[in-house]
Amino acid sequence: MTKQHVLTTINGEQTEFLCEPQQSLLGALREDLGLTGTKEGCGTGDCGACSVIVNGRLTCACLVLAVEADGQQIETIEGVAEPQALHPIQQQFLEHAALQCGICTPGLIMATKALLEKNPDPSEHEIRYWLSGNLCRCTGYDKIVRAVLAAAAQLRGAEA
């Protein structure tokens, strides 16, 4: 099968690539574009390790075809930090020890980013609900929830 041409925007940068139609966006990001920060834990939409933001919506990259990315705006973990500074969410994850092995972390940071853009002041319950698509096997979620609360507070403070 001939490859298809895709023109998309990834982390604000126009990006072109060729892909087979059956390839997932996750596969294209990781294998063709070298953006391996987005992880694969299941390939079936059940773990959230592959979370990216497509046109402002949190999405599992394993459930999107690479060809569907044509003309879309895609944000991945590689685009979260500023050149000289971590994003407050990243900073709070570190300071709250919200990662142990860290494989779930990129997905959780993307999910948190999407949450706080929609709801700057989430309750513990709202955070747990929103993050239920992101499995973490190491932490028991306690420190993740606290990190998200702290990041939300910091971001609100920054805006005030």
């Binding site: 920060g37 694969e40 973990i77 590689e78 971590l86 994850f93 570190l94 020890a97 990662l99």
Partner: peptide
Amino acid sequence: SPVRPDGIDKVTGHAAFGADRL
């Protein structure tokens, strides 16, 4: 409880896990 030495790599997606080698 300081921040871990590998922390930045792990929150920015730069840390290379098993499937990340090309």
